[in-house]
Amino acid sequence: MTDTAAPAAKSGPRISGAFHRLLAFSGLIALVVAFSLASPNFMQTQNILAILQATSVNGVLAIAATLVIITGGIDLSLGTLMTFCAVLAGVILTYLGLPLPLGVIGAILAGAASGLISGTVVAKLKVPPFIATLGMMLILKGLSLVISGTRPIYFNDTPGFNQIALGSVVGQIIPAVPVPNGVLVLFAVALIASFVLSKTALGRYTFALGSNEEAVRLSGVNVDRWKIGVYALAGGIVGVAGVLIASRLNSAQPALGQGYELDAIAAVVIGGTSLSGGRGTVLGTLIGALIISVLANGLRILSVAQEWQTVVTGCIIILAVYADILRRRTL
């Protein structure tokens, strides 16, 4: 009658959060090791830098998505908002000929303002986030075409602009590893977002809102204000992504952007953030974004046919999230 099917008594110590993240990290390491063994061209400085460069825009977007998703919301306007911010930077710098810092600040402020509007529609008008940001996605897509005059805007008149993503401050100091500035921007955004989430009242309310919004409201907290704050912060971060992509392409492409929010959300869920809110980390999201780029890059290095690359990426997304679910269930 003593069955073997029943699990053995588990009385070991609770596994700490740090170890938890380490497990998520091991997936990334496994991919890197596997690709390195499969191709000598993978573990090359230039290729690693290419992977980081490819992660920078999606990573920044995914960090913005993480904030909103932890509140239990979603932001579908990330991709087209990024484009809008990029185009706005183009209008400021190329069409109006204003100095470079104004273009960067303008893009970030435009992102924050858009987040403010999304947040207000969600919090005050009680429109579900999915719908509110779907609407914003289309509004911004249209506005990008309107303010750009439907043409790509080039930054040829602003010489330093493409240095924001493509230049390398690190490379000037250590010429052997010319880490592009865009990657530094990604890490800076990650550090700031991580700090806000773990150390500030805004961050604490971000988790609290996703955990139990009604309890927070009944604690006398001005729920609407904090929620709008989270969307605005996420919008500002998207503004940074807009500057990065414009700088990388040395142009603002008004038609680009739609669909990028899904890659960002994929990175967020691979990183272990719950779509139902209340749980998530920036580090996890960063790892998720890296897994996506390593996978894409590695499969290309191995010359895997493109149709199969897509299949494998889809499988990995499901596997990664399933592994995360299994881990949580057994802990």
């Binding site: 460069q53 680009l256 046919a305």
Partner: peptide, 28 residues
């Protein structure tokens, strides 16, 4: 000769094409 062929999902994804080009370069 050996030929590989890749392209982004939509003709608006300029940066995705850059990533493909960068990966191709790494392949030497």
């Amino acid at each position: 000769v050996k030929v590989t062929f890749e392209g982004p999902e939509s003709e608006t994804q300029v940066d995705r094409q850059m990533d493909m080009l960068a990966a191709a370069l790494s392949r030497k």
